[in-house]
Design a protein around this nucleic acid. Sequence first.
DNA 1: AAAAATCTACCTACTAAATGGTTGGCAACG
DNA 2: CGTTGCCAACCATTTAGTAGGTAGATTTTT
Lengths: 204, 204
Amino acid sequence: MRPTGRTFARARGAMRDTRAELLLQAETLVRGRGYAGFSYADLAAAVGIRKASIHHHFPTKADLGAALVEAYATRYAAALSEIRAGIPDGPGRIEAYGRLYLGGVEQGLGCLCAALAIEGEALPERLRGDVARFFADHLAWLAAVLGEGQADGSVRLGPDPALLARHVVATLEGALLMERLFASPEAFRGTLALLVDGLRPADR
Amino acid sequence: MRPTGRTFARARGAMRDTRAELLLQAETLVRGRGYAGFSYADLAAAVGIRKASIHHHFPTKADLGAALVEAYATRYAAALSEIRAGIPDGPGRIEAYGRLYLGGVEQGLGCLCAALAIEGEALPERLRGDVARFFADHLAWLAAVLGEGQADGSVRLGPDPALLARHVVATLEGALLMERLFASPEAFRGTLALLVDGLRPADR
DNA sequence: AAAAATCTACCTACTAAATGGTTGGCAACG
DNA sequence: CGTTGCCAACCATTTAGTAGGTAGATTTTT
């Protein structure tokens, strides 16, 4: 099943991208159907590689999962510091943060870490820790941003920034979960607007 | 592997509970690890029955899933009308609604329909419809309750009730997802309080 | 610079265990 | 007697993971 000699030249230049391609396709699969919902066979088919070759890059499925979370978290971290650098006020920053989730709704893909969090007990131990850290990092970033916002008057005073941060993550994760089901980016935008508006100080 | 004759008396009276027990244990499994994350073997072990017997009650896994959603939705529907009957004001009703989710955080169990929604594409077709209906029903109930609240002055005017309803479900689903991971009912309560407070009319 | 050794990326071909599901039977109950 | 509830023993397929190998690139030795 295949000529035997596979002496084809390997496209030149595109040598070292297989790993990245695996991560990309695996992320799409997990976000679309959950961690337990995809197999190495699915991934192999998506990438156009044989199943066994995946094990060369990621010995076990848990290894792949961990790499997935790491890459995802890294991308998010970059986006977060870009937001903080480019936008000055609290509500503006939260709105930009919320728009990161919007992409998922538009592509019909959930949050990677939400998909993993749902599996809970059944998830490989170490992955649970990575996922928890993902959320903790976001909460810390948001608490800092909201705290700054309260200090400069762009965010309403009163609730503890840490509490506000949890509210923000919860609302966005939940909205992504639900509005993906309904394939309704508009509804997501509505919820985001409402959320951001609730952070503004009551004028007068 | 077993004496062959299984002539034991079957506990008397507790004859027809197997189906209910299957639903109960299956719900726990799905809410704890996702739909793709549990098997008929797991369920058989949890109930203390042989795998094949499950198929007698639920021919396919999709049948089981559908029955699960139906039972879950029915229980919720009962709780919702009880809330509406027993509590007069908008915020109070929403708070009671939110407390329905709190149980999940305390038991370490997510929302059944959130677990199913995450699987998205991979989910048996008909289940997707059932799950969507579950959310749509909640949104309708909430929109009605919030509309009433606006009419009687217990809920702030301004945002469309349908929009507020989406915000409420999103926040609670997201908070359940996240706070279950952190095993933090207190944090859930905090988010719920913040959510309910945001619904109150600005005094003065 | 040529030859030898090692490494990288992938393959085919397997395996043991688990998956959802089927068949046919048996016993108890109404 | 027929229905209901359960079971043992299957089944085909899929699962994650392994074994062993091959071709080409890279590095090391001569």
